[in-house]
Each structure stands twice: as structure tokens, then as C-alpha cells.
Amino acid sequence: MAVFTEVSEPEARALLRRLRLGELLALRGIEGGIENTNYFLTCEQGEFVLTLFERLTAGQLPFYLHLMKHLAQGGVPVPDPRADPGGVILHSVCGKPAAVVNKLRGSSELAPQGAHCAAVGRMLARMHLAGRGFERHQPNLRGLRWWNDTVPVVLPHVAAAQAALLRAELAYQNHVAASAAYAALPRGPVHADLFRDNVLFDGQELTGFFDFYFAGVDSWLFDLAVCLNDWCIDLASGAHDGARAARMLAAYQAERPLTAAERGLLPAMLRAGALRFWISRLWDWYLPRPAAMLKPHDPTHFERVLRGRVADPVRV
């Protein structure tokens, strides 16, 4: 959620008029993130978030926007895209595809306790179940195919030991993906990026999941593994926090029990989740794009997480 494209107040006012949201009162760029341009819009009808999409195409975006609307209508606390009088929810600002969604209340919990992890696990399971009726389909664009394409691009930039681990883990994940157990994993729409900064809390009440622009159809277990790799990890060391993980897994399974195939492949999917974000952070670190507020994440964090997941598998 950096600012790659500068939006002027006249451009914001024109968009608000099209959406019939009243006059602009304030426009503020949002720091953080690495994919899209984001602004807080304050207007006569309340507070909203404007997103300009820097990588995703107008052809890809309906999946994400309609998924959010589907989940919002299913009772999941997610941003609900605003439509113009003709019902269109994908707009254009500064020549870029754009969307406006309601601003959810609360703030991110960057030092989560067990109760926060349980709340995320519970709502994640409900989100997976609510997504079963969603008819649109798009693969996880940062899935295995992207890993296979991107690892050769980042290999020249890393040390020999890192390159060896990348090659070995990528080979392992290709082997897992070809297995019958992997084919048996339950699937549906997933968030695929549900880190601490993409969830909102008001105290211990979970008030929102947001930033669905890495979503796609994938295994629900992969989505859960991504959460475990962020919410239940010590950020300083990359070490697994068993107590927090137990709370998240128990709360998730109270809503949707894991299948036998999922229980067996949890260690592999935890490795997959760590690999995915190590690759993307390496890519953003060594091949960055200019942005007014861009702060690439340190890729070595997920290298540590991956090494920990390989050395000490987590089972349920």
C-alpha cells in the first residue's frame, strides 16, 4: 500500500462525484505495502479507501472486487466496493484501474496474543466457508507457477547457500504439488496474504480482513499456513510460537475441521508459505520499483522461517 501514482484533489473530487459520495474533505496517501497506490478519502458520506492498481489488470480485478462483495454479503467483515449509479465497481483514476471501498474500523495488532490468533483462525475458517458459493475463478497468481518463474530471476542476487535452499525447496514443492494428497486438499477462494497488517481489531474484537489483491483459488490449507507463518512466529528470530499456533488451529477447526490430507500436508504448506514470501521479498528487494512511499520488507526474515519449518516440522 505505497504511493506509486500521485492523485490530485481535483481527480479525487471527480471520482467522488461519479460515486455520489459528496464533497472531498481530505485526501491522504497511505504508507506501507509494495503493490498498489492507496489513499484515505474523507468525504461527506464518511471515510473510504481509494486503491489504484499498479500491477493487476482491469481483466483480473473483477475477481477480487466481486469476491469482497460476496464475502461482505456473507457476513465476513471485509471492505465492500462502492458502485457507481450503473452498478460498476471497477473505476479509472489517473489512467489506472481503481476501486473505492468503505474504511473499516479498528487498527492492526502487530504484537498479537493468543486471543488475537484465535480470532483470526475462527474468521479465516468462516471466510473459507462463505467463499464456497463464489462462482468466479482465478488461480493464485503468486502460486507455484510464479515461484518457478521468479526463482531463476532472483538467484543471481543471492549467496550460494541461499541459492541452494531456494532450488531445493522449489523442487520439493513441485514434488508435493504433483502428489495425490495435494490434489485432495479442499480448495476455494483464499486471501493468501493475511498478515498482521491486513487484519483490524478493536481491542480483542476482530473488525476486518482487508487487502484482498493477492486472493485467488488455492488450497485453504495454504491460506491457513500463511497466517500461521506470520501470526504465530516470533518476528525477531523467525521461531515458531507453539502456544499461539495452537490457539489459531483450534479456533479454525472449531468452524471447519481439517481433513486427513490437510493434517498430513500442514508441514509442507508451512514451508510453501515461507517460500512464497521469501521469493517475493527477494524480488522486491533486488528488483524494486520507484514509489513515493516504498519500504521493501527484509527478505531474510522468511529465509529464517523457511529454515525453521524445514528443521522442525509442525504437526496437528
Rank of each mutant, 00 (worst) to 15 (best):
R55P: 06
R315C: 10
D149R: 15
Y252H: 14
A291L: 03
D80W: 03
D211I: 00
A99V: 11
P139T: 10
P152Q: 08
W147C: 11
R244H: 05
S219L: 13
I233H: 02
L185A: 09
Y172H: 15
E255Q: 15
A181D: 15
A12E: 01
G264E: 15
R136I: 01
H175S: 12
E169W: 09
I34P: 00
A180W: 08
A12H: 13
Y182S: 12
L56F: 06
Q45W: 01
T5S: 11
N229M: 08
G22H: 05
V49T: 11
I233N: 03
R187S: 14
T5V: 13
L124V: 04
G106T: 01
L41P: 03
A14T: 13
L306A: 03
F214V: 08
G133A: 04
F195A: 10
N148Y: 01
S237A: 12
A239D: 14
C232K: 02
R126C: 01
M269F: 12
A225H: 06
R304S: 08
G33T: 03
L306S: 02
F195G: 11
T37G: 04
V199C: 07
K69R: 15
M127F: 10
G238A: 09
N148T: 13
F4D: 13
H191F: 03
S280Q: 09
E47P: 04
H128R: 09
T42V: 13
K96L: 12
E109Y: 00
E11L: 07
G32K: 07
R167T: 14
Q138P: 01
A181E: 15
P85Q: 03
F201H: 09
M123V: 10
A99M: 07
N36V: 05
A119G: 10
A119Q: 11
A164I: 02
T57W: 09
H128F: 05
N102S: 07
V101G: 01
T57L: 07
H175D: 09
E9D: 04
L185H: 06
D80Q: 07
I34K: 04
W285S: 13
I89T: 14
G33Y: 03
G238R: 12
S179Q: 07
Q204Y: 14
R187Q: 15
T37K: 00
V217A: 08
G121K: 06
A177F: 02
P267E: 07
L200D: 07
R126S: 00
Y64S: 13
M248Q: 11
G22F: 01
A243Q: 12
P313W: 12
